[in-house]
Simulated scan of single mutants.
Amino acid sequence: MSQLSQSSIDFGLNFLKRISSQCDSKNVLLSPLSVITAYCMVLDGAAGKTEQQIKKVLNLDKINDQSEDISQLIKQVIESYRIPATAGSRQKFILNFGNLLMANKDEKFQEAYVQSLKTNYFADAFNEDFTDGRKIVEKVNSWVSNNTEKKITSILNEAPDSLDGLFLVNTIYFEGEWLKSFSKKRTRNKIFNNSDGTTVKTKMMTLIDERLNYVDRLDKQLKIVELPYVGNISMILILPTEDNNLKNLIDNLHSTELSSLMDSMKKTRLNNLTIPKFKLEDDHELHKILPSMGMTRPFQMNAEFPKITEGSLPSYISQSIQKAVIEVFEEGTIASVSTALRRSTGGVSPKRITFIADRPFMFFIRDNKSGVNLFMGQLSNITREQFL
């Protein structure tokens, strides 16, 4: 189990609480691991209060005082999925990581920093002429599109200006088949009860009489079930009881408790498991959200990034965006995410057991080997945009 496991759960749940507090009926999708990876790439070049705040908000401060040790943990996660399938073997799933460092041609990097990104993050690193802003936008967006199998076609909308020194981008692409696929013959149009009180008829997929990891906690007013993919990755679904609601569940759920709840699941025969077939897209302006969580210094002119470039000009993160998409259907799931940072210079049961997700719920896509949450989110409302 990776030490990043608890960090991904802590940060992801805190992030979800922050978004939910602003709008409890919003659909949310994010990748905790993508945010952690992108910001650990700048953490390698940070010092002082900037370094402390990044570690604290990402819940990395309890791992180790040395940033290089955190880089090694990320390297281990990425490296474990870079081993190609042996001849004649079936690829269990696709989990690809991409990291990009693109710098203005006038920026002179510290060699140790570039080497760390290449060694620990397997990053592509090169210089470009930022005076041709349109070309930079096309290059970055093309790189993101290629690394997410065209699921995310753009991460940048605005061309860099003369103060932009570099871009750091992370992508994660996941494609997995359910260990037990849903039969299309059982997919039916059924009612989903949206958090805003409306109802919608949408396609719902059903499994009958399957043994799955499951727990029903009446005291917590929630149910949890694990849907495994082929391989060692699973989707975890958390459904509030009918007397509860998703916002109340999220507000009162703590990361250690969540970990304990997932550990308490046991193999159980479910008579009926029904979940919606859906597509969800989301984006987050991290440069606005993370400061509200306590990470302010990296986005200010007095940010401390002394180990990235040569010279004495101040550096700070002027823009940081994550875009994510997920498609959940009968055969499996496709999910992808891209996180970009723009740095500026200037500065068996006797009873019938069912799990019917016909109301708002939380979900995670979890790497069972490392315990890291790759993706997480909440489905609060289904509209035509979510239809598959």
Rank of each mutant, 00 (worst) to 15 (best):
P298Y: 09
P306S: 10
I191G: 03
L16V: 13
R188T: 12
N194E: 09
D243P: 00
I19W: 02
I74L: 15
I236C: 02
E385N: 12
T171G: 01
E158M: 08
I382S: 00
L286I: 07
I250R: 00
S34G: 14
T131E: 13
K92N: 13
I275Q: 07
F130M: 07
T256V: 07
F167H: 10
L290E: 02
E68T: 14
W143S: 05
K201Y: 11
M262D: 03
S142F: 12
I19R: 09
S154Y: 08
L60Y: 06
P160V: 04
E177Y: 12
S264C: 08
K49P: 01
K108Q: 14
N194D: 09
P32W: 03
S259E: 13
H287A: 11
H254M: 08
L246F: 00
Y81P: 02
N193H: 15
E107A: 14
F355E: 01
A324C: 09
G346D: 06
K307C: 05
D219C: 04
E79L: 11
V200S: 15
D24M: 10
E128L: 13
I155P: 00
L212T: 03
P306W: 08
S162V: 13
E257D: 14
I155K: 00
V169L: 10
N232H: 15
N14F: 08
Q91Y: 03
D263L: 12
Q221W: 02
S67V: 14
L388A: 10
K118M: 13
Q378E: 11
F364M: 12
M362T: 04
S318T: 12
T345V: 15
P350I: 10
A103F: 06
K323G: 02
D216A: 11
Q52Y: 07
L207S: 04
K369H: 08
R186S: 15
D106W: 11
S320E: 02
L179F: 12
Q6M: 07
G45R: 05
E68V: 15
E331C: 02
S260A: 15
N193V: 05
D24L: 08
I9P: 00
K266H: 10
G371V: 03
G347P: 05
S89L: 08
F11V: 04
R211H: 12
T274W: 07
S154A: 10
Q72W: 05
V140R: 02
I224D: 00
T206S: 13
H284Y: 07
K118A: 11
P306R: 10
S71R: 09
Q221D: 13
Q378I: 09
T37A: 10
I321N: 05
V328T: 12
T354Y: 00
I208K: 15
P32I: 06
F387M: 11
W143C: 07
L253Y: 05
I224E: 00
S21N: 14
G176T: 04
E175F: 04
Y121P: 04
R90C: 02
R297C: 07
N141A: 06
V144I: 08
S255Q: 09
I317S: 03
K151R: 13
Q76G: 06
L273S: 03
S154P: 01
L163E: 12
